[in-house]
Amino acid sequence: MKKAVYYDVDNFKYEDIGELTIGSKEVLLKMESCGLCGTDIHKAISKSVPTPIVLGHEVAGTIVEVGAEVSDYQVGDRVYLAHHVPCFSCKHCRRGHYSLCPQFTATNIDPGGFSEYIRVPELHVKHTMGLIPDDISFEEGAMVEPIACCLHGFDLIHYYQGDNVLIMGAGQIGILQTQIAKHLFADQVIVSDINPYRLDKALELGADHVIKADKENVKERVNEITNGRGVDIVIISSGIGFLLEQAMECVSRGGTILVFAPFKKEPITIPAHRFFEDEVSIVGSYSSTPYDYKPALELLKKGVIQVDKMVTHRFPLSELKEAIQLAHDTEKEVLKVMIEPKGN
């Protein structure tokens, strides 16, 4: 049994897991597919987490052992999994901000998603694990968590049927948001990015218009598409500070900006008068909640999210470093990378 352990930038070691002993309310999972998330890439490239650590949290797998007190699952079940669990009772949870709960980031799967086998603690078994239907693949099951993150963001904004949406960033999250927005409410979905391959993917998966942000003026193109009105909703899905300034230029009166990507802790100048004069709102969204997993699974069951068109590369667990290097290269034709225990 192996795991891919992150020690430093470009330094991963393929190591033995050692013995994983489960408690009476836990399960042991064989990882079948684990998605490579943008946060995994950021952590590995910038070394923003304590090391050594096993990254990975977009997990789908097969249960190989169940604790004596586990009654809802059995050996052989195919399940999806998420990595954080709120307490459901603190101030933040009572206000519906589950991802801000102090317990949320204190919980995790053991040792992490990029491991052949994973111990699933009691709270995760109870709140963040669910059965994958027979007609849903493991790769699709591994997408439940990132789809849930997107749904959490949409839950925090006010949208109306026929709204126009600008999504800044055509990475894996931006492409998910494109498909969800088009399904839920959007009249026109506009996607901006600098990568032509990803912009083509955006068009393939539901975008009505794309803007190559390094060659075109985003504000001018948005005004052209919307007849000068601007967009009702802007979703920032790339952690680049000036995109907030750009979003303020593109959002219409009464519109909303959803900040879905982490910015560096540095000042950003925006026209504050618009909050009062135009009733513009800015909302932030972090991670997912346990209430978003089943709706995410439903989107997969209905074929709203086309995972097969999003996955561009698959790597064995032993080549996690190479997978991250590829995914981080903005000039490569890569969108969603999946990690498998042994690879095909």
Rank of each mutant, 00 (worst) to 15 (best):
C250V: 03
L244C: 13
F154A: 02
V280G: 09
H127I: 10
V66Y: 09
K30F: 04
D10R: 14
N227I: 11
N344W: 14
K30T: 02
R253N: 12
P86C: 01
I45Y: 15
V64P: 00
K3H: 06
V85C: 10
K332H: 04
S287N: 11
E140A: 08
H183V: 02
G206T: 11
L297W: 04
C101S: 04
I236W: 02
P50D: 14
K212F: 02
L320H: 06
D134R: 15
L243C: 01
N195D: 11
Y14S: 00
T330C: 07
M1Y: 04
A323F: 09
D278W: 14
L156I: 02
R78N: 05
A181C: 14
K336L: 10
A181I: 08
R198A: 08
T312P: 08
A327Q: 13
G67H: 04
E65D: 03
A213E: 06
Y73D: 11
H83L: 10
G171Q: 11
E298Y: 04
C149L: 07
L20E: 14
V75F: 04
G23N: 15
S115M: 08
L166M: 01
V259P: 00
L184N: 01
V280A: 05
V210A: 00
H42N: 15
I136D: 13
Q246D: 10
L317H: 00
A327R: 15
V191Q: 09
F185K: 03
I225L: 05
D40P: 03
L20S: 10
R119D: 14
A148H: 13
T312R: 10
P111G: 06
N223I: 06
L300A: 07
E19T: 09
M338W: 10
H83K: 08
K321P: 05
I194R: 12
K91F: 02
E340N: 11
E249L: 13
L205Y: 05
Q103S: 08
D163V: 10
C250N: 07
F114R: 06
L299K: 01
C87I: 15
F263K: 11
K182N: 07
G38L: 13
A207S: 08
G343R: 13
T105L: 12
D187L: 14
Y117D: 13
N164G: 08
R119G: 14
F154E: 00
H183E: 15
C90W: 02
I118N: 06
Y293C: 01
E298D: 09
D187P: 03
D308T: 04
R198Q: 07
V304Y: 09
E19R: 09
D232N: 13
